[in-house]
């Protein structure tokens, strides 16, 4: 301990211990070794002419690249938004008393999780070939209206819904896990107050489930950011990966353009991580920052109670304020 403590008199601990720490030479050696390796890697990146950092800088802000970023963002957030709505519906269907609802939800998740996203996107791209006209009507009965598939469902919409349907299957399981994580006592308490099922879900269960749902959903969003590069299968050819590789092929400089794509993905991911942090904070309100414990255990938790007592937010003599 090398830090200077205040002179005796103001220190509430008169016999403060100033012991020498355990010598750990291995730590220093490991840290130096890792730093040297990191410096070598940085050197290899910066000094290698083949990366053409001048080209990276030149095309980083190219209008085609920026437009690619925009399409990637639209596809990511658009498909995630649709997927979240679908996933909540699917998760509730899985918990429904109605066996038809349960089966449909199960089959949807089974299919979209069980086949590769790339294959799904190719099929969506072929929709107009498989069904040149789409119509709405009663099966084997009259039709209400119909339209040409390729006129209405453009590559963008097919890509958007293709990504969303696939993602909804994964998200549905995340939402289901979140709903299951909420103490059944919460539903009972809400029921006892006379709340109806829909209100209980919206006001009591979902807000608490969000605490469990948000972290993996952030993960899925970051994953989706990069999955959007697969929409070339539809084919949709505006997003970041396709745009940069097209420039790379045209200019015979594939490597710097790959670096550009990587840098943009990194930047967006970093921003998403910040957003996720704030979302987690919002849905974590009312729960201790470090503990994930729920009101399942009998009685107050020792650790949390101790922390609260230390924070001075709880009156020490708890019986003092009871009405006589």
């Amino acid at each position: 301990m090398t830090t200077q403590t205040s002179p005796s008199g103001s220190d509430p601990v008169p016999n403060r211990i100033h012991a020498r720490p355990v010598p750990r030479p291995g730590r220093l050696v490991a840290a130096v070794a890792v730093l040297v390796l990191a410096a070598m890697a940085a050197n290899a990146l910066i000094t290698n002419e083949n990366f053409r950092w001048d080209v990276v800088w030149l095309y980083l802000r190219d209008i085609v690249v920026i437009r690619g970023v925009m399409w990637t963002l639209v596809l990511t957030f658009g498909s995630m938004a649709i997927a979240v709505v679908l996933a909540v519906a699917l998760a509730m269907m899985r918990r429904s008393d109605n066996p038809v609802m349960r089966s449909v939800s199960w089959a949807w998740i089974w299919f979209f999780r069980g086949t590769p996203i790339y294959t799904q996107l190719i099929f969506w791209g072929l929709l107009a070939v498989l069904y040149p006209r789409l119509s709405l009507g009663i099966p084997f009965g009259p039709e209400f209206f119909s339209f040409r598939t390729d006129e209405v469902l453009t590559a963008f919409w097919l890509a958007l819904f293709g990504l969303a349907f696939n993602e909804s299957a994964y998200l549905a399981e995340i939402v289901r896990a979140g709903l299951t994580s909420v103490d059944p006592g919460q539903t009972e308490a809400a029921k006892a107050l006379g709340m109806k099922d829909g209100k209980i879900m919206r006001r009591v269960v979902l807000p608490q489930a969000m605490r469990v749902i948000v972290p993996p959903t952030g993960n899925e969003t970051i994953s989706m950011l990069k999955t959007t590069s697969l929409v070339v299968a539809v084919p949709l050819t505006f997003e970041l990966t396709y745009a940069t590789s097209a420039i790379g092929n045209r200019t015979f400089l594939p490597i710097p353009l790959l670096v550009i794509a990587a840098l943009w993905y990194l930047l967006i991911t970093s921003i998403l991580m910040v957003g996720q942090h704030y979302l987690e904070q919002y849905y974590g309100r009312g729960f201790g920052t470090s503990t994930r414990r729920r009101g399942r255990g009998k009685g107050p938790a020792g650790g949390k109670q101790a922390a609260i007592a230390a924070a001075g937010t709880v009156q020490q003599d708890v019986n003092k304020d009871v009405t006589p």
Binding site: D183, Q186, E188, A192, V204, Q208, R285, R294, G295
Partner: peptide
């Protein structure tokens, strides 16, 4: 009205 052994207040 009902009061439970483990309170079941809404934590959020």
């Amino acid at each position: 009205g009902m009061v439970f052994q483990r309170f079941h207040l809404f934590p959020h």
